[in-house]
Amino acid sequence: MVYEALDSTLGDTNALIASAVPPLLWSGYELAKTKRLDAVSFLVVASILLTVAATALGGSPKIIQIRDALVTGAVGLLFLASLLLEKPLIFYLARATSARNTEQGAAQFDAMWQMPEVRRTFRVMTFIWGVGLVLQTALMCLLAWVWSIDRYLLLSPFIGYGIFGLLMLWSVWYGARRKALAALQSPVQVPPAGEPIP
């Protein structure tokens, strides 16, 4: 709506820059309310900074148009690069979330990392998220090239959040499947003689 209202008077580049103001204000409100910068707010702020950088370099409308996708792709590449580390990036994100929810959360995650199945689970999830985010960026760049600016601004959030939602659903399904498999593979605890079987 901001782009459509200002495009005719400010031009493509300035109207695209102005369209970044509402999500920036929303992220500022969320930061003031929760006193912490979550992943979504971080991506929005990073995309705004990329907009400022693109403007300083000449303000190409295409670069400004795909700023969110470029940040998402950079995060995907970070996920893939973290596979070279002892612990991939998704492990640290999950550990930080767990630490915020419970006092023992971080310690529990560190203990879980000693299990081979847990290490494999986090590595597979990091790989899938990394590939998914990079492919999402490639798709968004293609759509920005073939679609008009107003059509891209209208439909790209639905596509982006749709892909993000699919990755989240896959993560929930895969995590539950790996937990069920670990439970099946764990040795059966036989109670001592005289005690009832639970």
Rank of each mutant, 00 (worst) to 15 (best):
Gln185Cys: 05
Leu10Ala: 14
Asn101Thr: 09
Ala20Tyr: 14
Met1His: 10
Pro198Tyr: 06
Leu83Phe: 06
Leu184Asp: 12
Thr72Tyr: 11
Asn101Pro: 04
Arg120Pro: 00
Val190Met: 12
Leu25Asp: 02
Ala94Ser: 09
Pro61His: 05
Asp12Glu: 12
Met125Asn: 07
Glu195Gln: 13
Ser8Asn: 08
Ala5Tyr: 05
Ser82Asp: 08
Ile66His: 05
Ser98Ala: 15
Cys141Pro: 01
Ile90Tyr: 09
Leu31Arg: 10
Ile159Glu: 10
Gln114Gly: 04
Val146Lys: 09
Ala69Asn: 05
Ser148Ile: 02
Val190Ala: 05
Leu143Tyr: 12
Arg67Val: 00
Leu6Trp: 05
Ile128Ser: 02
Gly130Leu: 03
Arg177Met: 14
Pro191Arg: 04
Thr97Arg: 14
Gln185Met: 07
Leu6Ser: 10
Pro157Met: 12
Leu143Lys: 11
Pro187His: 03
Arg177Gln: 15
Gly165Tyr: 08
Leu166Cys: 13
Ala99Glu: 13
Gln185Thr: 11
Leu70Arg: 02
Ile17Arg: 13
Ser8Leu: 07
Thr137His: 07
Ser98Cys: 05
Leu166Ile: 02
Asp12Trp: 01
Pro196Thr: 04
Leu153Gln: 10
Ile128Cys: 03
Gln189Gly: 00
Leu184Trp: 07
Glu86His: 12
Gly130Ile: 10
Ala193His: 08
Ser156Pro: 03
Val75Glu: 02
Ala138Gln: 12
Asp110Ala: 13
Gln104Lys: 07
Thr121Val: 09
Thr51Cys: 07
Leu83Lys: 08
Ala107Met: 06
Thr34Tyr: 15
Ala111Arg: 13
Trp129Phe: 03
Leu78Gln: 11
Leu83Asp: 05
Ile17Met: 12
Ala81Glu: 09
Val131Leu: 03
Gly130Tyr: 01
Leu155His: 12
Tyr174Pro: 03
Leu77Val: 10
Arg100Leu: 10
Glu117Asn: 14
Leu85Tyr: 11
Leu31Met: 09
Ser156Cys: 00
Met168Tyr: 07
Val52Gln: 05
Ala107Cys: 02
Asn101Leu: 14
Val75Arg: 02
Leu24Ile: 11
Arg151Tyr: 01
Gln114Thr: 00
Ser19Ile: 06
Arg123Phe: 06
Gly28Gln: 02
Ser156Phe: 04
Asp38Val: 07
Thr13Glu: 13
Tyr161Ser: 12
Leu153Glu: 09
Asp68Ser: 08
Leu24Phe: 09
Gly165Asn: 07
Leu83Ile: 06
Arg95Ala: 15
Ala74Met: 06
Pro22Val: 10
Leu50Phe: 09
Asp12Ala: 15
Asn101Tyr: 06
Phe122Ala: 10
Ala111Val: 01
Cys141Phe: 12
Ala46Cys: 11
Thr9Ser: 15
Ile163Pro: 01
Ala138Pro: 01
Asp110Phe: 05
Asp68Thr: 07
